[in-house]
Amino acid sequence: MAIKILADSACDLSKDYYNKYDIEMVSLTVHLDNEDYEDGKSISPKTVYHAMREGKSPKTSQVSPQTFKSIFTSYAETNQTLIYLAFSSELSGTYQTAKMMEQEVKESYPDAPIHVVDTKCASLGYGLVVLHAAELAKQSDDPKEIIASSHNYASKMEHIFTVDDLEYLYRGGRVSRTAAFVGSLLKIKPILHVEDGKLIPLEKIRGSKKLFNRMLEIMEERGGDFSNYTIGISHGDDLKRAEQLASMIKERLNVNEVVIEMVGSAIGSHSGPGTIALFFINKQYEA
């Protein structure tokens, strides 16, 4: 049997990709207006962003242990190889829960070919790692090869992003109330990145006009041969600006492909509307 790739909804891939590559997806939970929704299934990102613009604060929770146990058991029973590529363990407890359930299932099925991998990535950066693994799974029946390549690819995935309003990062505990207030007054736009799975502030840019130029400069500084790899852009319900950034990249760099997706409900609940994120493989990557 072919190796199956499992991802969670924090990879922000559209259903088209799940269908094309036969990827299985498990949802994080979004809590809004006293209701629980399955990210990527029973709530749309636009609903979340609309609520946030109205001042609401959606919450999220990780995938439940029972959900993982059920999925892992079904693969163990048929002895089909499953590789779960997880949302960064530094941003969610989902990876740790999956590892616990993997160990529990293997108590009953010690030879079950189930593998849980921490990508240390988020949003479409994580999604690009999932697609990389899914491509390999079409060609290889060696899980060790797929896991090693996915680890390597994920470790070289750059996440460069900005948010439209620091208030949302404040609500999520990423910046102080003072920083959010001062940033809004001065029209400061933060540039952040992901380092070893964690969100790290990188720079502060005064004025939105300079923002995309600086993001592209960072991309040029860190990136390698863009003609060989897919560039990812995800946005918090701001397709116009995402397309603007994509156009700038195509004009300035020799890129292979640019994929644009909306930041999903789970991650968007923390980053907020107007988020723009850029993902690419850095120059340290060697296939």
Rank of each mutant, 00 (worst) to 15 (best):
P190T: 04
Y75K: 10
A266N: 00
M101R: 12
K120N: 14
T78K: 15
G172Y: 04
V30M: 08
K210M: 09
S271W: 02
T73V: 09
S150P: 00
M219F: 03
A51C: 01
E102W: 04
V258I: 15
L202I: 03
D196V: 05
G223Y: 07
D8T: 05
F212Y: 15
T29M: 08
I218M: 13
I231N: 06
G55K: 10
A287D: 12
P201S: 12
V258T: 11
D164A: 15
N256H: 14
L91P: 01
A2E: 10
E102H: 10
D237L: 11
L131R: 00
T78I: 12
G93I: 04
H50P: 00
F161G: 09
S70A: 13
C121G: 09
Q244A: 14
A266E: 02
S149R: 06
L278P: 03
A7R: 11
S27F: 05
D165F: 04
R53Q: 14
L85H: 07
L166W: 06
R252C: 07
Y18G: 06
D12H: 09
G127P: 02
Y95C: 13
T162K: 07
S92Y: 03
I267Y: 03
A7L: 09
G93V: 02
E286Q: 14
Y109F: 15
T60R: 08
D164T: 01
P65Q: 09
G40E: 05
H151I: 10
D12M: 06
D16W: 00
A122K: 02
T97R: 07
K210F: 13
F280S: 08
T94F: 09
V130N: 05
K250Q: 15
I146N: 07
E104G: 00
I146T: 03
D36N: 15
S9Y: 01
S234D: 14
L28R: 01
P113Q: 01
D16R: 12
N282H: 10
E24A: 13
G127W: 04
